[in-house]
Design a protein around this nucleic acid. Structure first.
Lengths: 353, 353
DNA sequence: CTGTTAGCGCCTTCAC
DNA sequence: GTGAAGGCGCTAACAG
């Protein structure tokens, strides 16, 4: 079944069918009705492959993420699909598992399917891997690491705002020794978060805290290990900010095993606001970096680039703000910070809002 | 850049280029070399759209899942992508969010892109939604609910084995009152798990337990609510088996808040073995239903169907076995089952292995 | 306003 | 063994 079949049954030319489908306004209502009727009866759907072959646009956007089993990404994938579908775009999802070979393969798959644009939401910095795409003039959008080139957009994340709020929230709760567990510092985004922490600390003169910078790896296990380190620190911190939620959850998990009660004995703040964070015990106070917004920004960046005829000469920059979400993993610092274990606390944190 | 360009530069016809790419054996090595050289220099990749237009096969499989933000699905998606890519297939992922409208849309997207087959891994029972696909003779594969029709495969899950192991494991630990928290019984797969539990209980004559059947909803919140119910039961159960891991995790979470220690005061067993289960505290004993295997079975089912020329007259059936994975959320039943709270236990369960 | 026609990029007979 | 040519399903000029 194809456009000819429809045309035959509706007793019109294939051109009229095509026009009807694409709602070209010049079609007589009478004919349009006849065509639609046949289309419905037949359950006809145009062949997208043929369409894109002639139009030169596939209406497919590529989406490259690190790994979908990392709880940070599913929401991104989901909301990207959501908005893409609303715009009649299809999405070709690809995971890299941090493996350069898979990245190369991903790029290749994108090219073979002739995607109209690619969102690289890996938070990594594998820039030259995308040369193939660039030279083919495929619009790209990155997070934080996009080079300033034509057709390449960048979503810059304003880490500072959220992290400053977190630091000041803790300060207001009388914390003076705040640890920071970063991600792998080789990651530009991890380094940026750490830097934002340092600046926020300096701003309010809590310089003691600068001795409490620990490098983690953005995993739960990393968080557990980091907590052990923290427990061995002299002048043990009373609060800790983590570079991502999984780390924070690891810290909480390990605290539980060490008999340290959160938030009573230790205040914990995460970063990302993944779905899971509201469900841990206690619900995690965290810095929200909206995954939905990232997807939307990324999609719109690509869409804008596709729709404009003269490519942006130097790439467009979008900014995503972060902000603190107060839940129950932070509390006023305790005077004598013993490490007893009690019944799950029902104490409420004092908020600064 | 296209096949003509390659042909021109290699000074051969486009037919030869095509043959070279598709490794048709009749091409002279000499020519083949020339062609490949040009292809590499140019970085030429064949246009998949054009290919599938003429070949009639898109080399795309559709994958329909419920929602990618449910921790059960990411592994499925990932491993499906994995195996698909190894076979040079692309995958069109679609989420339904349990919304019939989105399901319809999903089917439509599949048809428009002319997928060669669709894996419906939603564990639901939205059968007639796929009539469109069936009538177009698109191979389909379902889990548990596939109707016995040509070109439709079915992955039947052997719930019984794993659940029986779980029940017997608990019995060996002297538990006699075992609760079961099911999923929504409207779901065929949930009902099947419950039935397997009932049979396994009967088999060893623990009929008391049959009074402890609770309907949950496969979410963490459902698990929390179910635990509260359990606490109010007279002859309170000393162990609970959950229809999925998220429910079990909810039970554990709520137990924590109620001051009930796991596994000391209550043994908990989950179902699915999602990634997260190894990381909760304590690590969850659960019944493994390998997501990777599901993906592989589903993919191969589709591939087989695509490759055979005469469609299977009645659909093929595949079986996936389940089995118990022992971790730390189960223990010997306690003589006096008070509800004190203690330091995180380091007690080890006695295993039956 | 509608129909005819020429490709989009590729595979595949069919001659040579 | 290789090339020429037709056609996959569709859109977009161009006529009428």
């Amino acid at each position: 079944m194809n456009i000819h079949e429809v045309a035959r049954r509706a007793k019109v030319s294939i051109a009229t069918v095509s026009r009807t489908i694409n709602s070209v306004p010049t079609v007589t209502p009478e004919l349009s009705r006849r065509v639609w009727k046949v289309i419905d009866e037949l359950g006809y759907y145009p062949n997208t492959q043929a369409r894109s072959l002639v139009s030169g646009r596939s209406r497919i956007f590529g989406l490259i993420v690190s790994e979908i089993t990392n709880p940070f990404f599913p929401e991104i994938v989901q909301s990207f699909e959501d908005i893409a579908v609303r715009h009649n775009y299809e999405i070709l999802t690809t995971t890299t598992i941090h493996d350069p070979k898979r990245m190369t393969l991903a790029v290749r798959r994108m090219i073979e399917r002739r995607v109209d644009g690619v969102a690289v939401l890996t938070f990594g910095m594998e820039d030259e891997l995308f040369d193939d795409l660039k030279s083919r003039k495929v619009p790209l959008v990155f997070v934080d690491v996009g080079p300033p080139l034509p057709r390449i957009s960048n979503i810059r994340i304003d880490y500072r705002n959220g992290i400053r709020q977190a630091v000041q929230h803790l300060a207001a709760l009388r914390h003076t020794r705040i640890a920071f567990i970063s991600g792998p510092l080789a990651l530009k985004t991890a380094a940026a978060r750490r830097q934002a922490f340092i600046e926020s600390i300096r701003e309010i003169g809590l310089s003691q805290s600068l001795r409490h910078l620990i490098e983690g790896n953005h995993t739960m296990e990393g968080g557990r290990a980091a907590l052990k380190e923290i427990l061995n620190l002299r002048n043990r911190p009373t609060a800790v900010i983590c570079s991502n939620d999984m780390t924070a959850i690891g810290v909480m998990r390990q605290s539980y095993e060490e008999g340290i009660e959160i938030p009573h004995d230790l205040s914990v703040i995460g970063f990302d606001d993944i779905h899971l964070s509201q469900f841990v015990t206690p619900p995690l106070t965290t810095i929200r970096m909206s995954q939905t917004e990232i997807s939307h920004l990324a999609f719109n960046a690509l869409l804008n680039e596709v729709q404009r005829e003269t490519p942006s000469s130097t790439g467009t920059e979008y900014v995503l703000h972060t902000s603190l979400v107060l839940r129950d993993s932070t509390a006023l610092v305790k005077a004598g910070s013993g490490r007893g274990r009690k019944k799950a606390s029902s104490s409420r944190r004092a908020t600064t809002r």
